[in-house]
């Protein structure tokens, strides 16, 4: 007994070392598996508050550019509204002439919310973004996040005030996309290297497209509305097994420059999830 005690006292630093490494590994593993571990991320309120305060200070220096960007986006949206209104009017006229009464309303399906970015990382293989809207603002996991330029990512975890976003620049990110003007869809994945590029990994070989074509969201995942821009095709190569094309996509969003984003929730998302979960697994 005495020898065991002596041994433990003599080598106590080994036990401390194993204990600390054990806790660290538990955290690493837990964060990868267990979705509720918001405390040990920067989505917790203390880190969120400190990042929010520094952001408030730094923000002033870029107000001019942000303003320009918002104005540009505004005018784009105005143009679109005018165009769509005239289209609706035309269609309603047509429907009235035919005596149709079927008018589908799309406007209520998606709900938009704005948020500011309080923390952002670019240099890791699994990057995360923290935004200042959480459960109390109606943000939930698996909502889509995009900026005025294009898709940013998907909400991963939420706390009361803050949310953790899984951006395109994360090796776990999978977003269903298609090339504009094409009906084939494919998955966008990041290889962990250059923050300007991501890859469409499983494009069928019969897909026709050219360099510079725009990649947009497909709308199949029910997280994003269809047609939100993602990037443009930069180059093309065959996948390792030669069955598909692998396209390098230059992302529209500059993740280093991001400051405010939109969060989009789909009211039909839960319904679609439940339906899809009933698909029998092989």
């Amino acid at each position: 007994m005495q020898t065991i005690l002596n041994f433990i006292i003599k080598h106590n630093h080994w036990f401390l070392f194993v204990l600390f490494e054990g806790i660290s590994f538990m955290l690493i593993v837990q964060f990868n598996n267990y979705q509720g571990a918001t405390f040990f991320t920067s989505a917790n309120s203390m880190a969120g508050n400190i990042f929010g305060a520094t952001k408030n200070m730094v923000e002033y220096f870029s107000l001019g550019t942000r303003n320009q960007e918002l104005l540009a986006h505004n005018s784009e949206l105005m143009n679109e509204v005018v165009q769509l209104r005239s289209q609706i009017a035309e269609l309603q006229n047509e429907a009235a002439m035919r005596g149709d009464t079927i008018v589908r309303s799309y406007s209520s399906q998606f709900k938009f919310n704005t948020a500011n970015i309080v923390n952002n990382s670019l240099n890791k293989l699994n990057n995360f973004i923290v935004i200042d809207k959480g459960k109390s603002d109606g943000v939930e996991a698996e909502m889509g996040v995009f900026s005025s330029k294009g898709v940013v990512g998907i909400i991963y975890l939420t706390s009361e005030q803050y949310s953790l976003v899984l951006p395109l620049l994360n090796s776990k990110s999978n977003i269903s996309c298609r090339i504009q003007g094409n009906s084939e869809f494919s998955t966008l994945q990041w290889d962990g290297k250059d923050t300007r590029y991501s890859y469409l990994v499983d494009l069928p070989k019969y897909t026709h497209f050219e360099r510079g074509d725009t990649v947009v969201t497909s709308g199949f995942s029910s997280i994003f509305p269809a047609g939100i821009p993602v990037g443009s095709i930069e180059s093309l190569e065959e996948s390792l097994d030669g069955m598909f094309y692998r396209a390098k996509v230059e992302l529209f969003v500059d993740f280093g420059e991001l400051s405010s984003v939109f969060v989009v929730g789909n009211k039909g998302h839960n319904e679609q999830q439940i339906l899809e979960s009933n698909i029998p697994k092989e």
Binding site: F25, L27, Q30, F31, F40, T41, F51
Partner: peptide, 9 residues
């Protein structure tokens, strides 16, 4: 880690 969202690393 807490500040950088990299728990444990």
């Amino acid at each position: 880690d807490l500040f950088g969202s990299t728990p444990g690393i």
